[in-house]
Amino acid sequence: MAAASALGAHTGKLDLAVRHVLAGLGHGIHAGRERGAGVEFSEYRAYVPGDEWRRVDWKLLARADRYYVREAERDSHVAAWLVLDASVSMDEPSRSVDGLTKLGCARLLLACVAALAQRQGDAFGLVVCQGERAEVLPAARGPRHLQRVLARLDGVTAGGALPDAAALRAALHFTHASGLVCAAGDWLDWPSPLSEALVRLRRMRHDVRLLCLQTEAEVAGGFDAAPAYRDPERPDGVFRFGRDVRAAYLRNREAHFGTVNAECRRNDVPLLAACIERAPGAILREWLRTAQRRTGRA
């Protein structure tokens, strides 16, 4: 909880938070492919915590007295696409960690995936789903592009509902080549045009991985009964969360996510549900490990 509290204060400083989370992460989003034919030296870059020591150029260290890592061009790359649900329900705050929301946690974890893709030399792009739009930052490689992605994530605020099917078809134009799709949301709206688009991408042989973010209060039904609540995506009524409501809420929640999990299993889409109050590094490790067990990647 202490780690989550500390990082909750840095949700607006993604570069700092990403370094913190990745400092102890020893692996990437897929198996490295530096060995074998077609590997040619590309450039040097400064060492960052988590880089493999075997990639450090020791001769350059002796001359420059600084750690540098050799980057290589590969025959093929995995294009990583980060999909962010920025609908208004993602503005749900933690009841125990000040300043922490589902959106803030999603931004941080997707930023970490982008940093891992950059570390591995892969192209990565961003799709922000909010309201009537699905804004796309095209896939590219390199540290400068990582800073562009971090800046865009840093500026995302929650609002509106999810885009419709037409907007998503126009945005998800990267379907011509199989890649990695990491989507973070709360998946309260399921089925939806977004869930259908992600399942369609999986059927097109993309490696689709979903992260379901929720608060501890949502999971346990631990909402305060005193204040009145309004559904941010359906502002047509006000209600209070009394004892009589809690039992029905938990039943409906279990049924909803039972359907979500069943559809993900049926379509071979790994889904990890995690409370945002957990340490981000632990969530990221479990998310990557869950997907890697399915794919057999190291």
Rank of each mutant, 00 (worst) to 15 (best):
V39T: 15
A248C: 08
R45T: 11
S96D: 13
E92P: 01
A274Y: 02
L84T: 02
E135R: 03
V219R: 02
L116H: 13
A248F: 00
A80E: 12
S192T: 13
R278V: 11
E277K: 08
E277L: 08
R289V: 01
A123S: 15
A291M: 10
A23Y: 07
A151W: 06
A197W: 05
Y67T: 04
K13A: 15
F174I: 13
L250Y: 11
C105W: 00
P143K: 09
F223R: 09
A184W: 07
V269Y: 02
R200P: 02
H20S: 14
G185L: 11
R205I: 02
D91L: 00
P49V: 06
V97D: 04
Y249L: 08
E52V: 07
V97A: 01
P280K: 01
T175V: 13
G121K: 09
R285F: 15
R294P: 10
L22S: 01
R293N: 07
A3M: 14
F223H: 11
A298I: 13
A167I: 13
A279T: 03
D189T: 05
E92K: 13
A217R: 05
A158H: 08
L109G: 09
G99F: 05
T290P: 04
A184M: 03
V149K: 10
V39S: 15
H256Y: 07
P138K: 06
A139K: 00
R240I: 06
L150R: 00
N252L: 11
R203W: 15
A228P: 03
G32R: 14
M90L: 04
Y44Q: 10
R285L: 15
L250N: 09
Y67E: 13
V39W: 12
A37C: 14
L137N: 12
A158E: 10
G38S: 06
G12S: 14
A111L: 08
A123L: 12
R202P: 00
T215K: 07
R285C: 15
